[in-house]
Design a protein around this nucleic acid. Structure first.
Length: 248
DNA sequence: CTGGGAACC
DNA sequence: GGTTCCCAG
């Protein structure tokens, strides 16, 4: 009886540790003092000086790409962000799109996902020609890769730095000069990563691969550690881009 | 909520 | 033409 009790406890600890490791693998390293928010379908860190998310992280599986619910335009305050975020009205007549970091289209597999994706913490000011142009093409490719590889891990964010231009009436927030996205395929068959760094303006080149870089290079630009739990032996996933894995 | 625009397949 | 980013009213 006693040994059964101990075996149970150890089993629970091992299972818990396993779950923790698996989940943590999905998002970048969280620094001290950062405001980390965990929703059901994605995680983010909110930057209170820029009043934007510093990064968002989610996984997209092939069976989530098919839309089951309608697209919502109900932009609400993120209940899990303790500080006040910019409002819907702050973007009115600003000349910028309310651009999603995690695409609304990727969270149409159920109602809660669609509610969460429209929280203002996931919204950033994007030049319309950027958001509706090359950014959308990149997002469409992410869905293609999710279908192709069953599941992808995606980290998306604005490149935040000092002295960005500010907009907003109620809440002042920064207008990023560029955005990034990392995509990681990590399963038993294939392990491969790619990053994109694209200016927040009409793209000179419509080919997304002109903006592709290694995850390592993006880590230098953003001063972030995107996949802190990746084993040392698999470092090539971050320091190389195998374009054949990503091109059609 | 409806209509329309732009970019890109 | 269809899809998917949106905005304005």
């Amino acid at each position: 009886m006693n040994s059964f009790k101990w075996v149970s406890i150890i089993l629970i600890i091992v299972l818990f540790a396993g779950c923790q490791a698996k989940r943590q693998f999905e998002w970048p390293k969280v620094q001290r003092k950062e405001q980390f928010v965990q929703h059901k379908y994605f995680a983010l860190v909110y930057d209170d000086t820029h009043e934007l998310a510093k990064w968002t992280s989610y996984s997209l599986d092939s069976d989530e790409v098919y839309p089951y619910v309608e697209r919502s335009y109900n932009y609400r305050q993120d209940p899990k962000v303790s500080t006040f975020t910019p409002t819907y009205d702050d973007y009115k007549k600003s000349g910028f799109d309310r651009g999603h970091l995690i695409p609304a289209r990727d969270m149409m597999f159920n109602e809660l996902a669609q509610v969460e994706v429209n929280y203002m913490s996931n919204i950033t000011p994007q030049e319309p020609s950027f958001n509706r142009g090359i950014w959308r093409v990149l997002e469409r490719n992410v869905r293609r890769w999710a279908n192709q590889y069953d599941s992808v891990l995606v980290v998306t964010g604005p490149v935040l730095k000092d002295s960005l231009p500010q907009i907003g009436d109620m809440t002042q927030f920064s207008v990023p000069e560029s955005f990034f996205k990392t995509v990681m395929v990590y399963n038993d068959t294939i392990k491969s990563g790619i990053a994109f760094h694209i200016p927040n303006r009409k793209a000179e080149d419509s080919d997304i691969f002109q903006y592709a870089i290694t995850i390592d290079s993006l880590e230098i630009i953003t001063e972030m550690d995107f996949y802190p739990r990746i084993p040392r032996k698999l470092q090539y996933v971050e320091d190389t881009v195998v374009f054949e894995h990503w091109r059609k």
